[in-house]
């Protein structure tokens, strides 16, 4: 008789009767969540925002107490970063101002009583960083991919020991090995060369990239390649046509991690490069300057230094979202 207690609506229900999506409670939770994330994001971004502001401040503004939030933006920091300058005396300034050929950069520096006399070291070192980090990343990801594939698919005698050995190269902190590497590099003529730094970063990143990529490749069922082998393809063709397209997430994640390491590396770069192959990280502190700390210049240098990593990460973001959450790869 229980069925008679159920009331049947006379008219059809044509609005959503689902309450889980539109309930007040759900909306509040959602709002709280967004608020919390926003707060965290703001806290994380404050240093970067402060750095960006400092990069556009003039020297007095940068060191003003209390700190200035509104100020007149200037490119002084950037110009002094990429230009070599000379301090002028009052008479020289007066004479210099009459020169009709001054461009905007000259005028900016003149306000500080300085004349531009050439290009500074920074652009060249920035380029060194780009070359060394970029090439070593390409090498460590591609070599890592091939060896990770072998570890993942073939039965290699002592594979476990080999993998541990590969990982163990990463166990010593760089500072510990810089002196021996320095001595070896000096002996074989790799000190202060691009090739030397590329080899070093490639080797250092390789252990990481092998391990990370092996994890990703293990997730790709081998039936795919076997199907391709039976369908008339060689192992290498199957790898290129079947495995590679499925491994893009892993490759993207590994690329970003390797690039960030090679780009940020400081200890090796400081010890193993002098002038020719010196990268950007060790040169930013050298901008501390002789006449007080040049905050605007340092901030400008750091900001420029951030940009390549931001660009690469942004370009690969759609793969990264899945790539950095390993286990969550769709089967």
């Amino acid at each position: 008789m229980a069925s008679q207690n159920i009331s049947v609506p006379k008219t059809p229900i044509n609005y959503s009767i689902r309450v889980d999506k539109v309930g007040v409670r759900a909306r509040i939770i959602r709002a709280v969540r967004i608020a919390a994330i926003s707060v965290v994001a703001v806290i994380m971004l404050i240093p970067i925002a402060w750095m960006s502001m400092t990069a556009f401040k003039s020297r007095p503004d940068a060191v003003a107490v209390p700190p200035k939030v509104s100020f007149e933006p200037t490119l002084e920091g950037f110009v002094s970063l990429i230009a070599k300058t000379r301090q002028l005396t009052t008479e020289q300034i007066a004479e210099y101002e009459k020169n009709p050929d001054l461009n905007w950069a000259d005028r900016i520096m003149l306000r500080r009583g300085q004349a531009i006399i050439g290009v500074s070291e920074y652009p060249r070192r920035f380029l060194n960083s780009l070359i060394i980090a970029g090439v070593s990343t390409v090498f460590s990801v591609s070599l890592g991919l091939l060896s990770a594939y072998s570890f993942s698919r073939f039965s290699i005698p002592g594979a476990g020991d080999l993998l541990f050995f590969i990982l163990s190269t990463r166990m010593l902190p760089p500072v510990v090995v810089t002196i021996p590497v320095f001595l070896m590099y000096r002996a074989v003529g790799l000190y202060d060369t691009h090739i030397g730094m590329i080899i070093l970063y490639t080797v250092f990143n390789l252990s990481f990239s092998v391990w990370l990529l092996k994890g990703f490749l293990d997730e790709i069922p081998r039936e795919y390649e076997e199907a391709a082998l039976v369908d008339g393809y060689t192992r290498l063709q199957a790898f290129r046509k079947i495995v590679l397209p499925q491994a893009v997430t892993g490759i993207a994640a590994t690329t970003v991690f390797c690039l960030i390491f090679a780009w940020n590396e400081y200890a090796f770069a400081l010890m193993l490069t002098g002038d020719v192959a010196r990268t950007a990280p060790p040169s930013i502190p050298s901008a501390l300057g002789t006449g007080g700390i040049e905050w605007a210049r340092i901030a400008a240098g750091s900001m420029g230094f951030l940009i390549p990593v931001v660009i690469v990460t942004f370009a690969l973001r759609k793969y990264l979202l899945r790539g950095v959450t390993f286990g969550a790869i769709r089967k």
């Binding site: 069922p221 039936e223 795919y224 076997e226 199907a227 391709a228 082998l229 039976v230 369908d231 008339g232 393809y233 060689t234 079947i242 397209p245 499925q246």
Partner: peptide, 29 residues
């Protein structure tokens, strides 16, 4: 090699290439 034996293998699962369309899967061999 498997490719030279000229056999066709129907696997229990997992053998459709996920990055390709059905047409490309059929055309692949």
């Amino acid at each position: 090699m498997p490719a030279d034996r000229d056999v066709a293998f129907v696997f229990q699962q997992y053998s459709l290439y996920p990055t390709m369309s059905v047409y490309d899967n059929l055309a692949f061999p």
